[in-house]
Nucleic acid binder design. Structure first.
Lengths: 294, 294
DNA sequence: CGGGTCTTTGATTAGGTTCAATAAGAGTGG
DNA sequence: CCACTCTTATTGAACCTAATCAAAGACCCG
């Protein structure tokens, strides 16, 4: 119930498999490596067109292990973080020590932006898996914006994107039922994984029910129950952290589960598509391991 | 229930009273007037120190009447807005036409930022009173950032501030009871009014219960009931749109109304301060009118 | 294997929604 | 000016969703 103690040292497994796709360029076992501007843009999904490839600016990587904190609330702000690989959560801590999950940053996401205003981080970031992060000192970023007009716009764009995301979040919390929230959460995870080259149909949750609940404004029990319900009516398959998406469209459009009397009917309406054997490159299980990507 | 039709032409009352405090410099009756950079910074509460006062850049003002839309969702984005005077709401519209209120911009607030990312406004802004807005073309803003390093940081800062605000919102929606939400809403309104030089103890709501409810993720009935409850136990006084803050501290720290059994006890604990006759410059009633400020 | 965390599921409660009726204002037009 | 209408606000009663409390099973790791 309290701020999940976070084991601080789980899965110390060193990188298992390596890979060398385009974006993964600047990465290597433990060693802090460096990315250049182009790589940075690619990861952030920013048009890197007009970027001079001869740009010598380099950005340092840092690794964090599961459970480690990247920054805490109130800590002086000076750098932004971009997720190169791994999964995290950002949280607010209320006066009683309760966590409120704000986001689950993953590859391509930037976090720490909330520190710009007050020069102190307004939230806390914790690694949910081993992570490889790119450090982006704010001063450097600002300078970069000045040097490359393109990049400047990109900065604004990323911040704007984040704002839109938060708006969607507010909207969801303000208006949707528990089922709809969980459904949307699954859909967005699915899409996010697809973006990253993982399977959008079969993946493992990196966060606990408690964290999901906090993120969605629900209790862990409600999350658990809702997942079970989705499982029963055939929208998904659930087994602990493993989720199989069976009917994405239904999840996408779900607003409210039929009032349990009509529940049976709904089950039938699930256009028995269970035939389609879900698969595809599954998400790395052993963390930090083989990114069995496309 | 549907997206309040918005009368589009209520209170066509022209500006009643004028005033000429420091910040109000570039304003005048109907005429679109212009503000210079320094004034802009002042309004935005940005340090305008290193700004060359000889700067010739001017920013156009525009007036909107109660009920008018400033921009709509999907409309091509090119300018940001800064509230010089008046009250607005920004809303999201779901697939059924239901509004979700995201914010209530007022003096010193910037909105439209959500349009940067997709080059289209992601939300809709509606005037809740007659408004005087400063137009800030995004291109101009970006150029400005390049010209004045100070200002560039200010841009990031304002966007970051907005993000933090949204985070607080998410946190509130995710974790607080109805009473706590309404209490916080009142507190933040009070503080906001104080900032603007109005009375923090006595003011009029510019928005309907429905809009407040939408903003707080509650129904209008719950908002109404909660206000009534606060009134009963002496935290505030309510009469329609008029709110009197009686016990700010209680509102600030309220997490959950005592379980109605202890309710009586609570009433007594209200350190009978009703003696203090609330007053101070009240908010302009006739909109657009006399800013009876300090 | 044992302690810890995480998850599932059930029973009960309560906070908020929904439905409904009434009242108070504000604007309109005869 | 008053009747009429429309929107907004208040309040009550019934219902329902999700929270809370509780217990047992699954998983993880030392």
């Amino acid at each position: 119930m309290l701020s999940t103690p976070m084991t601080e040292t789980r899965s110390d497994i060193p990188p298992a498999g390596l890979h060398s796709s385009s974006v993964e360029a600047g990465w290597q076992r433990q060693g802090k490596l460096w990315s250049n501007l182009k790589e940075l843009c690619d990861i952030l999904r920013i048009p890197s067109a007009a970027i001079h490839t001869d740009e010598e600016l380099l950005f340092q990587h840092v690794q964090f292990k599961t459970g480690q904190r990247i920054h805490t609330i109130g800590q002086p702000f000076d750098t932004l973080y971009i997720v190169h690989s791994g999964f995290l959560k950002t949280v607010l801590i209320d006066e009683f020590g309760n966590e409120q999950v704000l986001s689950f940053p993953m590859k391509g996401d930037m976090f720490g932006v909330d520190g710009i205003h007050s020069k102190r981080y307004a939230s806390e970031a914790v690694a949910l898996s081993n992570c490889d992060l790119i450090l982006l000192p704010f001063k450097k970023l600002a300078a970069l914006g000045r040097a490359h007009i393109e990049f400047e716009h990109a900065i604004y764009s990323v911040m704007s994107r984040e704002l839109v995301r938060e708006q969607a979040m507010v909207s969801m919390l303000g208006a949707l039922s528990a089922e709809a929230r969980v459904a949307r959460f699954l859909v967005s995870l699915s899409e996010r994984y697809a973006d990253m080259g993982y399977s959008s149909k079969l993946f493992n949750l990196r966060m606990t029910r408690h964290e999901i609940g906090s993120y969605l404004g629900l209790t862990l029990e409600t999350v658990s129950r809702t997942l079970s319900a989705f499982n029963e009516i055939g929208l998904i398959s659930v087994d602990q952290r493993s989720i199989g998406i069976k009917d994405l469209e239904a999840l996408r459009t779900l607003r409210r589960l039929p009032p349990s009397s009509t529940r049976a009917k709904q089950v039938s309406s699930k256009k028995a598509r269970a035939a389609a054997p879900v698969q595809g490159p599954q998400q790395p299980e052993g963390d930090w391991g083989q990114l069995a990507t496309a």
